[in-house]
Amino acid sequence: MPASPREEDVLTARELYRFYRAGEEETLALRGVSLRVRRGETVAVVGPSGSGKSTLLGCLAGLDEPSGGEVRVDGVRISHRPETERARLRALHIGVLLQTRNLLPHLSVRDNVRLPQRAAGRKPVTSARELLAQVGLGERMDALPRQLSGGELARAGLAVSLANSPAVLLADEPTGELDGETERMVLAMLRDRAAQGCAVLIVTHSAEVVRSADRVIALEDGRTTAATAPAGGAVPAEVSDATG
């Protein structure tokens, strides 16, 4: 990867390493991964199970600390800081969209969106009511997650990830359990966010997601093995037409 960030690079990672130890056993989950995502760009990260994709996303989001290397968002280093500082920076700069666990079950959809807005400690650019209206859930604001359909849950999770108008949106298999129509709807919303200047990185096994990306980064055994522009080209072998 290029050694120096450019002005339009919103997310940069340099030489990320992540080691796990269990007794005398050591697992190398990431082995010197570097990447960058520009403003308005959508990047798909693909690779077989166990290749380090979710570990990479956790380090990029500040949910996990790399054993070596650093992550910067909008020029601000978020790695190698106390968890409280990482949480504050994540609330200010990063939206995280997970396949599951994006919503707290005991809170209404509106309160789930308000929660990260309060954590950021500043007045939100877009209110929870407005965000939910944008994703088609204006009439479901007071519903609990268990009262939502699969498609509604996906849209509610997206609203939570966009609560603070993040510079970077990181998504981990966001369409893995969705039907084709709902997947296309979520992808359309992600593309719209990128068009507004957000840097979007998606960890995925979905061929549809890969086709919609500007670039594809492939991981294998904790290392980047390729970076390609799909733009109507072939889908990498690591990706199947199944969304799981």
Rank of each mutant, 00 (worst) to 15 (best):
G47Y: 02
L97M: 10
E130R: 08
T225Y: 13
H106Y: 10
V200T: 02
T182H: 11
V209T: 08
A237I: 07
T175E: 11
A195G: 13
C198A: 14
S4H: 14
A234E: 15
A133P: 07
Q99D: 00
R122E: 13
D64Q: 12
L60S: 06
R101Q: 11
L137D: 04
T204W: 03
L56A: 08
P5W: 08
V46S: 01
Q134K: 07
A242F: 14
M185L: 15
L57V: 11
N112T: 04
A159S: 13
S67V: 09
E26C: 02
G50M: 06
R38N: 08
Y20E: 06
G52H: 02
V160W: 06
R72P: 06
Y17S: 01
S161H: 01
I78T: 09
L63R: 03
R184F: 00
V135R: 03
G180Q: 09
A188Y: 13
A163S: 05
R39C: 11
R14W: 07
L107D: 00
P2V: 09
R114L: 15
A3S: 15
R6D: 13
G138F: 03
E181M: 13
P116V: 06
Y17R: 10
R110T: 02
A87T: 09
L169T: 00
S54F: 08
G40A: 12
D9F: 04
L104A: 13
H93L: 06
V113D: 01
R211Y: 05
T100F: 12
L60I: 12
R77Q: 15
S240Y: 09
S4A: 15
A143V: 10
L144I: 12
A3H: 14
V235R: 05
P145W: 07
A171R: 04
R88T: 08
G151E: 13
P116N: 03
V33C: 00
P105N: 02
A218N: 04
L170Q: 04
E130I: 01
